[in-house]
Design a binder for these strands. Structure first.
Length: 462
RNA sequence: GGCGUCGUACCCAAGUGGCUCAAGGGAGCAGUUUGCAAAACUGUCAUUCGCCGGUUCGAAUCCGGCCGACGCCUCCA
């Protein structure tokens, strides 16, 4: 069975067929670096990371491009408010973003083009749109895209332009334009822009938001590529506008598959910076969340469903991380790694089918948990073959290469802890349970969990 | 007003006409194991899928209505 995706453009699942066999061009809308990204932003980035990992596992060579929006209203406004340069501001938050990405164990994209580095490319695109009559200039130096010149406008979001209610914001727009819904390709320089601006044939200014993605995606992946992702809120107007610009400029189809991830909710509502009800990654770190437990929370629900992020789920996600991590240790203790010969257990094909079904992570997880239970059971009864152990090892490794739930067990035991363990062992041999229990308790307070097994005591980090 | 999503156990969360079904996880309870714990495993945990009608031999799954929650239409993952 080949992989199927729910293509937002067609609103149905379809088999994925790459433009070039074995390769996938993947463009994902990245952050606007005017502030810290929050956990809701990372829900989308985590989904895109999962997608890339799964495609890679299937053998595709994925070229993943994630843009960094480093010039727009918000970045300019904030830099000006802080009295620093746009570059200083965006560099700061880009750095934070990269740190968070790495902490969450997300694989880096192949490239992170910045909008400010793609201005010439954007100008070229706009020139082409002007030449072909899809865009027009205004007296203030702005350039707008004429949406009525593109009959397919609204196809992605099924929006009928004429039926739209006009918001106050639109009619009060500070820029001149022919029709309220025409969107800016280029915004003429205004005083509030300060020293932010680039020279263009139609005057100094800065790019509109949407043009950067059209420019950078075609630059990195070609005019026509495989997959474009983003959050559902980007469907309109951002992605709709991208399609309009790109297709009108190149005359070619733009993207084959559009994938959109749903929102992450908190307190029953959308988490967003403007509402102030959000968690940054640093907030969650302070609250004691591990990257693995956050990964579980973000990946346990299907990407097209709203998920609830909750501090109450911390315990649940930690239990999962612990179970899977313990499972790995148990396999290692049984030398499973030495028995692996590249064979997978039966459960793997079910897991694969479920992942191939539009990345059905909830059911894929269910498959893995059932498998884990079965193997644990066999280990308990000591009725497991070397072949089964090897296959379990293979499956576990694939599983973790996709979900990344396993917590590293590299830790050093200090001299002091070592002494405590020896003391406890001695107490146990003397059946001095009171002392043994009290040492276990005191170690627990220091962040260590001691477990007694048939092979003696074991220590791990709490 | 237009477009769209969703309502499943104490909590999270799958399933979208019949087949092995209301998956899986967390919490709880009971048990195996253990000196005791922990871990692991076993059992238990929704005759029922917001409510009311309809279609059908058969619906959580399709249709209609109602109630409720949410998103987009303006920057937003």
């Amino acid at each position: 069975m080949s992989i199927q995706f729910y293509n937002s453009l067609k609103r149905e699942k379809e088999n994925f067929v790459p433009i070039e066999e074995g390769k996938v061009g993947l463009y994902t809308c990245g952050p606007t670096v005017y502030d810290f990204a929050h956990i809701g932003n990372f829900r989308t980035f985590m989904f895109e990371d999962l997608l890339k990992r799964w495609l890679t596992h299937l053998g595709y060579r994925v070229n993943h491009v994630m843009n960094i929006t480093d010039v727009d209203d918000k970045t300019i406004k904030k830099a000006s408010a802080e009295g620093i340069s746009l570059l200083d501001l965006t560099t700061r938050y880009t750095d934070h973003f990269m740190i968070d990405l790495e902490w969450l164990k997300m694989l880096p994209a192949n490239s992170y083009p910045k909008a400010t580095n793609a201005i010439p490319k954007m100008i070229k695109l706009i020139e082409r749109l002007l030449e072909k009559g899809f865009a027009y200039q205004e007296r203030d130096g702005s350039v707008y895209f004429n949406i009525r010149s593109f009959p397919d406008y609204g196809r992605l979001t099924h929006i009928d332009i004429k039926a739209q209610k006009q918001g106050d914001r639109v009619s009060e727009d500070e820029y001149d334009k022919d029709a309220p819904q025409d969107f800016a390709l280029w915004k003429g320089w205004k005083e509030s822009d300060g020293n932010v601006g680039w020279d263009a044939p139609w005057g100094k200014g800065r790019p509109g938001w949407h043009i950067e993605c059209s420019a950078m995606s075609s630059d990195a992946l070609g005019d026509h590529f495989d997959i474009h992702c983003g959050g559902v809120d980007n469907m309109f107007p951002h992605h709709e506008n991208e399609i309009a610009q790109s297709q009108c400029a190149t005359g070619e189809p733009f993207v084959n598959v559009w994938l959109h991830s749903e929102f992450l909710m908190v307190d029953g509502g959308k988490m967003s910076k403007s509402l102030g009800n959000f968690y940054r990654i640093s907030d969650l770190r302070e609250l004691g969340f591990s990257p693995e437990s956050i990964r579980y929370q973000l990946l346990a629900g299907h990407y097209r469903s709203k998920i609830l992020f909750s501090l109450d789920k911390k315990h649940e996600s930690e239990r999962i991380v612990q179970r899977v991590s313990d499972f790995q240790l148990r396999l290692i203790e049984n030398n499973a790694d030495q028995f692996s010969v590249g064979l997978f257990p039966e459960a793997y094909s079910e897991f694969k089918n479920r992942m191939n079904n539009d990345l059905d992570t909830p059911r894929a997880l269910a498959t893995f948990f059932e498998f884990m239970k079965k193997i644990n059971s066999k280990l308990d009864e000591q009725k497991i073959s070397e072949m089964e152990l090897g296959a379990a090892w293979e499956f576990l490794n694939v599983f973790d290469s996709i979900f990344g739930f396993i917590q590293s067990n590299d830790f050093e035991i200090s001299q002091e802890i070592e002494e405590q363990l020896n003391k406890r062992n001695q107490a146990r041999l003397n059946k001095n349970w009171a002392e043994s229990d009290s040492i276990r308790k005191s170690l627990h307070k220091k962040g260590w969990i001691v477990e007694d097994t048939h092979d003696g005591q074991k220590i791990k980090k709490a």
